Amino acid sequence: MSSLDPVPYAEAPRAIRAALEPLRGLRLRTVTRAAEMLTLGFGELEMVGKRQVAQYALNLQAPWRLDHLATGTVTGRSDVWEPLELPAPDGWHWDEGPNLRDHLLGQLFPLNEAKRRFENQSDDFIVREIEATAAGDLTIRFAGPYEFRVLPQSTRQEAWRLLRPGDFSPHFVFEAGRAGYEQ
């Protein structure tokens, strides 16, 4: 676990909403993954060193899902461990693909193969509203008919963190039932 300066449990929803408030009005710009961790990039793309990154990154290690309000779940965390086709081909491994999650995300966002990320240009994915609970649950509502939900389930592990790539200011982290800025 990291060294957090946690807020009191009863104050967590307000603190989480305040930390995530800069995302309101920003476009979900990029979707990437490192192993099973998903990273959502919000805002304009900027150069940080030699890499082009979004202004904000929300790293997710907790269960999550992307819902379409009219048709239901589009994809979720567990889809990364599912082969695109059943039965799985001999020797199939989720990280070498193709896996169901990456395929379903590719239906919404074009894949930039050179940068190994999905890139969004749609106004449907501009952050409209953010809800949070003391347990670290997040609901990010977009301008279009989509919601992104995060549902932490661990009493020991980091669930999610918000950071500004290239900025060395403290990250806002939710882990082990505690929310706060990493020290």
Rank of each mutant, 00 (worst) to 15 (best):
G76H: 12
L100E: 04
N59W: 04
N112S: 12
G76A: 09
E96V: 06
N59L: 09
P98L: 00
P89S: 13
Q107L: 13
E85G: 07
P98Q: 08
E85W: 11
E82Q: 15
E82I: 07
P83E: 09
V74L: 13
E113V: 00
G76D: 07
Q61W: 10
S78W: 11
H68L: 08
V80P: 05
D102P: 10
T73K: 13
P83K: 05
R101N: 07
P87A: 11
H103A: 11
R65H: 10
G72S: 09
D102H: 04
W94N: 08
N99D: 08
R65K: 15
P89R: 11
A70N: 07
L104H: 06
P110N: 11
L84M: 11
F109G: 14
P87N: 08
L111G: 11
E85K: 13
G106Q: 04
L66Q: 03
D90F: 03
A70P: 04
H68M: 11
P98A: 11
P110I: 04
T75R: 03
D90A: 15
P89T: 10
W64D: 02
G97H: 06
W92P: 00
T73Y: 02
W94G: 05
G97N: 00
A70L: 14
E82C: 14
S78E: 15
G97I: 00
G97P: 04
W81P: 06
T71S: 15
A62V: 01
L111T: 00
G106L: 04
D79G: 13
N99A: 04
Q107G: 15
Q61P: 02
A62T: 01
E113M: 02
L100M: 15
W64N: 04
D90K: 08
L108Q: 10
S78Q: 14
G72V: 14
D79A: 05
T71K: 05
L69R: 13
L66G: 02
G72I: 11
G76T: 03
H93S: 14
L58K: 06
P110W: 07
L84S: 10
L108P: 08
W64R: 03
T73L: 12
L58F: 09
P110F: 08
P89L: 06
W81L: 09
N99Q: 09
N59T: 11
W94D: 00
P98H: 01
L69F: 01
L66K: 06
R77D: 11
L104C: 01
V74A: 15
A88S: 15
T71N: 11
L111D: 01
A70I: 08
G106W: 00
G91V: 00
P110G: 14
E85D: 15
D95M: 09
